[in-house]
């Protein structure tokens, strides 16, 4: 499936590691879908399943994003630069509810709430890992 250009959501993107890798990734394993690898363009979505929703609870921050399941693809675009990366859903996350109201801005335009988690491979394609979060638009 190819990545599309129909707008789906907007918010903050953060990053996480997964797969059998070094650091704290080992315990995370290959994610809720069993396919997640840090070195591939992959992502975690808060509404991957009902069980996932119960963990992330984005609705508590006013984010009612639709269900998208393992293997769904999305285009994630940096709000400021337009740099875009196409990712495949492979895990559940981020924990939106724990950071309600958190915003990331560029030049006064802000994106609020953590709505997608990218693997290092995907995140570095549009930003710097040491920044931790980016304002993004999501398309499918």
């Amino acid at each position: 499936m190819a990545c599309g250009s129909t707008s789906l959501w907007a918010g903050e993107a953060t990053w996480f590691c997964c797969g059998n890798a070094w650091g704290s990734c080992g315990s995370a394993g290959t994610g809720a879908c069993g396919t997640c690898q840090s070195s591939k363009h992959m992502a975690a979505w808060p509404n991957l399943s009902a069980a996932c929703w119960d963990i992330t609870r984005p609705d508590l921050c006013g984010e009612n994003m639709p269900r998208r399941t393992c293997g769904a693809v999305m285009n994630v675009r940096h709000q400021c630069s337009g740099a875009t990366v196409c990712v495949t859903l492979a895990d559940c996350g981020p924990r939106t509810k724990s950071f309600c109201g958190e915003a990331t801005c560029c030049n006064g335009a802000c994106r609020t709430n953590r709505v997608i988690d990218l693997t290092p491979s995907a995140f570095t394609a549009i930003g710097s890992l040491s920044s931790g979060k980016l304002p993004v638009y999501i398309y499918e």
Binding site: C80, C106, S128, S130, S131
Partner: peptide, 22 residues
């Protein structure tokens, strides 16, 4: 300061030229 830069118009303008991190 990096966070401040990344929020700024200057960063947005220069991003296409920048290749590295700090």
């Amino acid at each position: 300061t990096v966070q401040l830069l990344e929020n700024s118009l200057a960063w947005q303008t220069a991003m296409p030229v920048v290749r590295s991190a700090l």
